[in-house]
Write a protein that binds this DNA or RNA. Structure first.
Lengths: 266, 266
DNA sequence: CGGGTGCTTGATCTCTATCAACTGGTGTGG
DNA sequence: CCACACCAGTTGATAGAGATCAAGCACCCG
């Protein structure tokens, strides 16, 4: 239970693809600094220069963009085992704000060390790259969610995503988990107004599909929520099912394969 | 003008960060197959297994997700010099459909070859990784666009993005460029209905901020469009301004730096 | 006990979707 | 060469989802 942030992170990576011992150990040996935050605390300011990457040991973190109008859009949530903002590993500044929605414990590793390690160990590089690609897949799904679904569907979709992610960590049982979010934050993640979100949540409750108790959420009728929202866990890449990750590569007959692919396709 | 797809791609990378000759050449020497598409043709079907990555030599490509309801969300546009769906380099299947909005010429390189090259050349790996991160930054901006902005702002924002991207390639002059999109496609990228998009475009035209002629778009009052939509080119990372990309890494006093950062922060 | 935060409610407004029809251009086939 | 079909764009009318405004309630904490 009391795994370190890096141990949690490695577990996540290894749920997708087992790592050679040497690579796993190399990640675990990364040096860094622990740092805790209280609920509501800002972790990284928008525009701040990024020199370190933070790994979550516990808590709940969100990343948001603020528009000139003052409106905000929450772009992602991060929980234990996540690398927050590996996305800015190769950028000098962060293009969005990161903050703690609940008391949060993190571990900070310097970008330089991560890059050095990646350079020395292609497998580590690939695992991190993959993690970025998964994050991007989630971004895409969120874009579709906000762009195409109505309030009822959007909320269901988000709840299903969070349940799946908590569940993969053993932090959800029978569709029940703790979601340390105010309704205001949820509204900002979904592109809805607070009032409308509140009323739509009530619809979900009245239909008996979900129940809430404080910060605890129970998905009472997952099949129905899934049907309604069109949720499909695949994009979260919680396991290795859709991961292509050859470790020992041999110079293959790649071009020949390309030709056959292209001609067969149509 | 008649640069190959890989040459265009390398130019894009080098606008961000100059590459050592050996690495540049290694990319340019990637083998592959050329393939052309007509307007409206599907390039990759959703769910198809991904074995090759396509580089755009000319034309206009979009990537879209289809929801069970039948609605679609366009997730990204790609033009000359782009690597379409480097995002699925480490996945076995594509989670979205890719298709040509205009006659398009592409060059296909096998994932295996790309991964082999990345393994051999950390700098190439980093350049490709960076390209994925930039794509992800654009996804984030789109999420915010669709989630928080109204129709007028959304359209303006998209047009500004496309103008900036074309402009970086020398394909836009004085705010005028060719956008090979039907209004239906634009609506699907912005999460708007076709009818509403059409009417809102008319507002933009009546206010004298844009003009259209066939597929040609002219941004007549960029300052006003920027003010309205809160557009900020930064997220496109067209140049190297915000790119952090040390090539020669030395084991630094990273942890010490972390400590000072963390204590200074608050 | 006062004030803050988070949740809830009702009334109203408006933006955007939906439905339906019409135009103009393009292309194809008889 | 015309008839027809098709597609992209446009228009008007109507409906509905969701935003906004305003207020009240419950809980927690200093």
């Amino acid at each position: 239970m009391l795994m370190s942030a890096l141990e949690q992170f490695v577990s996540k990576l290894e749920r997708r693809r087992r790592l050679p011992d040497a690579d796993r150990d190399a990640i675990l040996l990364l040096e860094g600094v622990q740092r805790d935050y209280t609920a509501g605390e800002t972790i990284v300011v928008e525009g701040a220069s990024t020199t370190h990457c933070c790994f979550v040991a516990s808590g709940f973190i969100s990343r948001e963009k603020r528009l000139p109008s003052g409106d905000r859009q929450i772009l992602a949530f991060h929980i234990l085992g996540d690398a927050v903002d590996l996305q800015s590993l190769l950028f000098t500044t962060s293009d969005h704000r990161i903050y703690a929605n609940s008391p949060t414990s993190t571990f900070w590793v310097s970008h330089t060390d991560i890059l050095t390690l990646s350079e020395a160990r292609p497998i580590v590089a690939k695992a991190l790259w993959l993690d970025c690609l998964v994050d991007a897949a989630i971004f895409r799904e969120w874009t579709a969610n906000v762009g195409q679904r109505n309030a009822l569907e959007r909320i269901s979709h988000l709840l299903l995503e969070m349940e799946a992610r908590f569940s993969a960590l053993g932090l959800a049982t029978a569709g029940t988990f703790t979601l340390p979010l105010t309704q205001a934050a949820m509204a900002e993640a979904l592109g809805l107004s607070l009032v409308h979100l509140n009323k739509t949540l009530q619809v979900l409750r009245k239909r008996g599909w979900i129940a809430t108790n404080g910060r605890s959420v129970a998905l009472l009728d997952k099949p129905e929520l899934i049907r309604l929202s069109g949720f499909d866990v695949g994009y979260l890449h919680l396991d290795g099912e859709k991961i292509k990750w050859p470790i020992g590569l041999q110079t293959s007959t790649a071009t020949a394969a390309a030709v056959s692919l292209l001609s067969l396709e149509h």
